[in-house]
Design a protein around this nucleic acid. Structure first.
Lengths: 346, 346
DNA sequence: TTGTAGGCGTTATCAT
DNA sequence: ATGATAACGCCTACAA
């Protein structure tokens, strides 16, 4: 009964051959005697030999491990993204070393460094909300460790990025609202310092203008994404003389809180007040009032594309060892989903 | 500008000292000249030296990596469990190698083997629904690689397990229903071959008996967890002469589908038909009819406890190298949560 | 206080 | 067709 996994050396000793021979036999190397090969393979199977990838990778100076850092895996968006990544990674014989930043730049730095020590071959990261400088990540690139950003990407021109075109999607949503006769369109945006919020805001302004509607800053409110804050924002938006009749929510969680506020205030959801949102989380399917429209960002797709970009980068690196590859920007086409949510009344 | 991370050797060469000296300096070894140490540490910092854990672990024959395999990370339960694991792992300088089985025993085997090749120091696994024999996992234990099962645990006496006492929790739920005057209690159980289903069934029978109620097999239905199957099960349960007035659902997803069916069939939820369930997913907070009662299984807690058990096992292993530790069974105390769901009517 | 040497598992290179 | 050797980065017992 083996107490630990056998090594090539041990097999070699048992069979009175050299380790090199065993290695060749196990790799079906052409220049080896057929009987020797079979003898070795038989014993290896009996002993349950499994190559020690640690040793191989150490020698090859590659780990075949990709670090993946997300803010919080409990967010459905990220866990689905990781699923997509795993599929691609596994198909290419890579594995995933996993870490969370909890939206804390300090912890992000810690995790990045842990991965650096582990010599990951590459890093996939969705930035923490509060990350503002990228030194710890740029450092990796200098070391030839490719970094691919996804979803929450930095404002750097020469970084590899995979993301959804929220801007274009938002324009579409506004067009849709206009077509359905909603003219008083408000936005319940996230914290102003988030890139995601800035993007939505820009699109909101442009989208409203394109429909020849007037921008009314009374219809713009901000939430820190907590339920209380969303409730407060809803008050400033709706308890005025001229409330909006449609709300674009920052994401589906904000949407659900906003709807809850509306219900509590006897507002007829999707009749007096229409809701559209981002993300299209599966859970909204079960809620009373899903958004009429949701900007689907295909998290699994984003994950698999991001990992594929990484695989491509690593391949290029092995082929043309010196070339600095131009930054890859991959836009995932968004989808406009019309979930079960229905317009109530006319 | 360094093209790759510097090694101890390189530092040694630059400073015209031996690698051993550098190693000692970086470890604050007592027997080293203070100037030498500072000189070396200064250069190491400048060069951005980071120890190559790959090499260290290879030499130490430990990877400081724990494999974590779950059926599907997109299930909230598992992503929260992994969060708990990561916290404990990080605190002990371990990292997590991540894999999914997608409830497919074949894929489970593949992933387990990948982790064996990677020489993980231990494995945390929640079994795939369809896993029936455990050879690939028992093989690990023979190799001194501890395996800790969590949530979906095998029926093996001498395995390390962390799980929730669903049985006791179910008895509590039935007691609660009885106290609230529900006497016609049905169960919408999962596939009969799942251990989780068998456990619920056993508890259902015992719980009903303890309240001196009669077991009526008409009130027992099974779903394969798909929406269609749940709908079908609801039909067999409710479209009879003597339908139940309370339903215990296999989990919150089944619960939500069942409620949807009830609404479609004009049944007054939580008035004519009460619902209780397992899991207490955060999402039910947003649904129209959360379960009146949900058996909270504390996924994050389960994850952190499981990882802690693993840490303890590894520690024991290093201390007393030969002892075979007795199996650890850790029951996470469940909680009975009364979420926002309200009894309608009387 | 510092240097030397050997070894962890594997494979590529060179020699036989 | 097979064997011997060196090397990857690090650590450590031993030698100086």
């Amino acid at each position: 009964m083996p107490k630990s996994l056998p090594t090539i050396k041990q097999i070699a000793q048992q069979l009175q051959v050299s380790p090199a021979t065993v290695s060749r036999a196990l790799h079906n190397h052409p220049r080896i005697g057929i009987q020797t090969r079979e003898k070795i393979q038989k014993l290896a199977a009996e002993l349950g030999y499994v190559p020690n990838t640690q040793a191989i990778h150490f020698k090859q100076k590659r780990s075949f491990v990709i670090g993946v850092i997300v803010p919080q895996i409990r967010e459905a968006f990220f866990s689905e993204a990781i699923s997509g990544m795993e599929t691609i990674a596994l198909a290419n014989d890579y594995t995933i070393l996993f870490g969370q930043s909890y939206d804390d730049p300090e912890r992000e730095k810690t995790v990045v460094n842990a991965m650096k020590r582990q010599r990951v071959d590459g890093l996939l990261i969705s930035l923490s909300k509060k990350t503002t400088h990228y030194d710890h990540l740029l450092a990796l690139e200098k070391l030839q460790i490719p970094v691919v950003y996804f979803d929450r990407v930095p404002n750097l021109a020469d970084a590899h990025k995979v993301f959804c075109n929220i801007y274009a999607g938002t324009l579409e949503m506004i067009k849709w609202l206009f077509k359905h006769q909603f003219r008083k369109i408000g936005i319940l945006n996230g914290p102003a310092d988030l890139p995601a919020s800035r993007e939505r805001m820009k699109a909101y302004i442009d989208g409203i203008s394109r429909q020849h509607l007037k921008i009314d800053m009374q219809w713009v409110a901000e939430t820190d994404l907590s339920q209380e804050s969303t409730f407060a924002a809803m008050e400033t938006l709706l308890q005025t003389r001229k409330p909006p009749n449609a709300i674009i929510s920052f994401n589906d969680y904000v949407h659900m809180d906003a709807v809850q506020w509306a219900i509590q205030h006897k507002i007829k959801v999707n009749q007096d007040l229409a809701f559209v949102s981002y993300a299209n989380l599966p859970i909204t399917r079960y809620t009373t009032y899903p958004p009429l429209l949701s900007l689907e960002q295909y998290p699994e797709k984003q994950g698999s594309v991001a990992m594929q970009v990484m695989m491509d980068l690593l391949l290029q690196k092995t082929l043309s060892s010196e070339e600095k590859t131009p930054p890859v920007h991959r836009e995932i086409p968004f989808g406009i989903a019309e979930p079960p949510g229905k317009l109530q009344g006319s």
